[in-house]
Amino acid sequence: MDQLKKEIQAKLTSAKTLEELNNLKVEYLGKKGIITELNSKIKEIPNEEKKTYGMKVNELRTLFNDLYNQSKENIELEEVNRRLESEAIDVTLPATKIEVGAPHSLEKLIEELEELLMSMGYDVVEGPEVEKDLYNFELLNLPKGHPARDAQDTFYIQDDEILLRSQTSPVQVRTMLENTDKTPIRIICPGKTYRRDEDDATHSHQFTQMEGLLVDENVSLANLKATFDVIAKKLFGETRQTRFRPSFYPFTEPSVELDISCFNCEGKGCPICKNTGWITVGGAGMVHPKVLDNCGYDPEKFTGFAFGFGIERLAMLKYGVKDIRTFYTPNDLRVLEQFKRKDSE
């Protein structure tokens, strides 16, 4: 029996394949297997030795099974390892890449502003680009023949009546008129605008504005200042300072230019701020009482502020784009793709 034990140990540990292992199983434990035979010989063993004999055969069987299982595990592991080895790839070869499309740079900036202002309670409202003179000018305190219309040479579609809007302000007018309950208003209106300008590096006959309007009781220029501060810091960094410069818009009184401290030189003076330390990024003011009145809001009771940004100008400053035409033409993929990623917060 001891001889047999050694033999089992030697054979099972040296088996290299599952097949060999199975053959050994048949050889020892099969119907006519060596251990099976030994077991059946128990009847020929004298009674007093039967117990010891049986135990020894069982020991052999247990030994066989243990060694068999261990060997099987080893062989299987080796086989898996071989397979894994054969599946090795060059992981540095190029990916089959899932491309994500980029938002347009102007849209990216608009959405950044929208997100900020919506968190401050402003609703996003849009209006038509083919607009009535009434909404684009007349109700905004720009009657026909008003010299300030000169500054906005406009594309007319039907004389004195229909035009391509030269500003997004008509959306403010429409919103105030449509709000028949005359409740407070907090909106922003981004959109395309058009002026009869020849295209060059800094002028575009088509451009994008985003205006904001807040109408309520007791609204002040100080409220506008704080709102502008929030926007300036979000777009151009926490260290931005803001400045109001008196200005003129027919639909606001007082009117101001919105300046930010230069983010490039921190106010020391550089070409971007033309050595003034300040950059004008938009216009704003307190809604002109005439405009409130035209839109059905009692100027004795309500005041409001309005602000407007040229999105192209903001994008040129923020992203460092030199030529405004880049936003519209020729749409080189290498330009578009630069805006597909998430911007730094």
Partner: peptide
């Protein structure tokens, strides 16, 4: 205001009911 100087204005956010802005549905 313009003669006195706007740079003396102390920024003060409007005190308004809190709400979240929404996009027009379209």
């Amino acid at each position: 205001g313009r003669l006195y100087g706007y740079d003396t204005i102390k920024a003060q956010l409007p005190i308004l009911p809190t709400k979240t802005g929404v996009y027009a549905p379209k």
